[in-house]
């Protein structure tokens, strides 16, 4: 069996009084793109930085491609690539010079470095601009160059910390296309992102981190099942009925219905069998009250709802429990 791409056990990292990683456990199988999600300050960047050998863990065991990060950081550096939310390329050097420099720093002889730089430039559609200074590049081109710099070597794991933050939609899609297909070329990807659509678009496996721990990990479809099945959406004709409908569909012990004023839609997770019974009763009550409905539909939960249920909402639920006591 091939080594796990990442194997983390009980990672702890404190910065002063703040605990950034609080016993994080994670096992990532090879051959996939993994997206790490989490609210700001959840420990995403700290985790990526520790995989990239950039900081010393207080305790825990972390292996990348079977190599111990603490004992053999340099061997780890040989199998990883890192690209960040800031394009860390030298603006006063050309695209080609940037790539050749990184290739040489990977220990490649000049001739190999040149060949690899050319290969990357062609692959990312930068060949025509290869000999222009990077400071004349657009934001998207710079980000592609940054991504390409990690690929002049053939890393087993590419770490991308918020790769598309601050890019316009077109540049974002271009970068997604560039990330696609990396796995086929033998490079796994671990990316952090604040955009759930990005995670869903790129990743076959999603890890949700909160308070320095993994709170959920799995393929997107599996995570969606975890938050309680499908979502019922009730579309009312008259905005004034929204509150009444939401109240009818609320059931104790289940997630509260969400009201969207703009679209006149109340959405609520179906939940378990008892929950579904409650919903049917609720719908009957709505019908008895004579509320006019425009539409009713059932859909899969969005990743956003999974994310809120597993992170933000959890603490809101605890607050409610405290308030009723």
């Amino acid at each position: 069996m091939a080594d796990l791409t990442i194997e983390a056990r009980g990672l702890i990292k404190r910065f002063g009084k703040k605990t950034a990683l609080d016993g994080l456990d994670l096992a990532v199988e090879p051959g996939q793109v993994v997206a790490v999600l989490g609210p700001n300050g959840a420990g995403k960047t700290t985790f990526v930085r520790s995989v990239a050998t950039l900081l010393r863990l207080d305790s825990g065991e972390l292996r990348v491609a079977g190599i111990d990060v603490r004992r053999e950081p340099e061997a780890v550096r040989r199998v990883i690539g890192l690209a960040g939310q800031y394009a860390s390329v030298e603006p006063a050097m050309t695209g080609r010079e940037n790539l050749e420099m990184v290739a040489r720093l990977y220990g490649q002889p000049a001739r190999t470095a040149r060949a690899n730089a050319t290969r990357v430039l062609e692959r990312f559609g930068l060949a025509g601009d290869a000999d222009r200074l990077a400071r004349t590049y657009s934001g998207g081109m710079r980000r592609k160059l940054d991504l390409g710099a990690s690929l002049v070597s053939t890393p087993r794991l590419l770490l991308l910390d918020e790769p598309t933050t601050g890019l316009d939609p077109r540049a974002r899609i271009e970068l997604w296309d560039a990330i696609d297909g990396l796995v086929e070329h033998g490079t796994d990807v671990l990316l952090t992102t604040q955009y759930l659509e990005e995670a869903e678009r790129l990743a076959g496996h999603i890890v949700i981190i909160d308070h320095g721990r993994v709170v959920a990990s799995g393929p997107p479809a599996q995570l969606k099942r975890r938050v309680g099945g499908n979502v019922l959406e009730v579309h009312v004709r008259d905005r004034a009925d929204l509150a009444k409908v939401a109240a009818s569909l609320a059931r104790p012990g289940h997630a509260e219905p969400q009201v969207d004023e703009a679209t006149c839609v109340v959405s609520v997770g179906a939940g378990d069998q008892a929950g579904i019974g409650g919903l049917i009763a609720g719908l009957r009550a709505i019908d008895d009250a004579g509320v006019e409905l425009a539409d009713i539909s059932v859909r899969q939960p969005k990743l956003e709802e999974v994310f809120l249920a597993l992170t933000g909402q959890e603490s809101a639920g605890q607050a409610r429990v405290r308030a009723t006591k």
């Binding site: 930085r49 990239a52 050998t53 950039l54 340099e74 061997a75 550096r77 040989r78 990883i80 690539g81 890192l82 690209a83 960040g84 939310q85 800031y86 394009a87 860390s88 030298e90 990184v102 720093l105 990977y106 220990g107 710099a149 770490l159």
Partner: peptide, 14 residues
């Protein structure tokens, strides 16, 4: 440091 250039360099095997 701010732009991550040093992080990039430190993640390389030299």
């Amino acid at each position: 440091l701010h732009t991550g250039f040093i992080d990039r360099l430190r993640s390389l095997p030299f």
